[in-house]
Design a protein around this nucleic acid. Structure first.
Lengths: 201, 201
DNA sequence: CCTTTCATGTAATGGGTTACATGATTCG
DNA sequence: CGAATCATGTAACCCATTACATGAAAGG
């Protein structure tokens, strides 16, 4: 006998994951969907509010009305026991292969259609972006990496730490890749033809 | 004066990028949306056929009827001059920040709610997946990496090579990350309590 | 006083998946 | 003779973004 027959969406599980850490309002959830979990999952408030209603109807979350500045009653949501069970089930469930969509790689996949100088500019701008995000993640990780809870696999901070580490590693790999590409580009098309160059013409 | 005022979608540019390399039927395009470009962009045939009609209405592509096995006339699409221009414009255009959605990281972000043994299994299955994909990309790259066109920034194979290299680097980073995580997990919770172990309890 | 932040909702539109539908050829 | 491959399309539905709508408190 299953605890939940209602099929909960990915967004629903993202919300459950947030509420498993601490009770939040819909507004707070929307903020968190930028940072800290915004770097691997995102959603707008217009998507969050209806999903909260669905989760509550399924008995996975509950709310209490608190003081707030909005024109309507401010609701703070928290995880119901069935919600924690549903989250646990989902974490260990067989992952269905998700469709990949990387706009940056798609763009660079057609870089051969433009002049090499434009391609170099393009790659340099990618490198800049990845460097910026890398620096952000590194400062964010530094804020809590040394706390003892960040070492405990049963603590939320542990998961925050390892996922941030993932972000750092992939951004670093992306920066390295950009630099490797720049090497490949200038190797094939030397930037200054007045300077004598070695290698193939 | 712009060449195209019609706003073309990401999918549209993916199709233009494919047709810039060689003429294809809608069916062929759907196949390519799995491999080779399927690892960074994907689409089903039900999405591709209407988009082809839109691109053709915008004058970016053309088709000719060829012999085929389908019940309806088989159409081979190729890029029109305006299509190549639109593709070039898009490649060098300012990229709008795309929303990120990584289901694997979202899942692991809630790994703290399950037993450490379950978490270890989870990470091991992630490592297996990344290793498989890494091996696929490596064999695919080996097929054309040594061809001379793969060194020419103006050739499609150059872009194929560098984007595959990106796939390889990110998958390798992911495998390393999984192994690092396993180290963190067994460090905190020793797998076999009967064996005497060093470090903190 | 004006802008930002707090705070919650709905409506319209676009992008994407699943399912429906058809029919010839090739291979086991 | 049945399954897979070739080959193209439509319809229904879900997910996500943008835009519409409202209003109080706080800060410059």
């Amino acid at each position: 006998m299953k605890t939940t027959d209602a099929t909960t969406s990915n967004l629903g599980h993202a919300i459950l994951g947030l509420l498993a850490r601490t009770p939040l309002t819909g507004y707070d959830l929307a903020q968190r969907m930028r940072r800290p979990i915004g770097y691997f999952w995102s959603a707008r408030h217009s998507q969050i509010y209806p999903e909260l209603a669905r989760l509550e109807a399924a008995g996975l979350i509950r709310h209490e009305v608190i003081d707030g500045a909005g024109p309507r009653p401010t609701k703070r949501y928290s995880l119901a026991p069935a919600g924690l069970a549903a989250l646990r089930d989902w974490v260990v469930a067989e992952p269905s292969p998700q469709p990949v969509r990387d706009l940056e790689v798609l763009r660079l996949w057609s870089m051969w259609t433009v002049a090499p100088e434009s391609a170099i500019e393009l790659v340099e701008s990618c490198r800049r972006d990845h460097r910026t995000r890398l620096a952000e993640y590194e400062t964010e990780l530094a804020e809590f990496a040394q706390l003892p809870e960040a070492r405990d696999p049963g603590a939320p901070l542990f998961a925050s730490r390892v996922t941030l580490e993932y972000g750092i590693r992939t951004q670093r790999a992306a920066v390295d890749w950009c630099e490797w590409m720049l090497g490949e580009l200038v190797d094939a098309s030397p930037p200054d033809p007045s300077t004598p160059h070695h290698g193939r013409a």
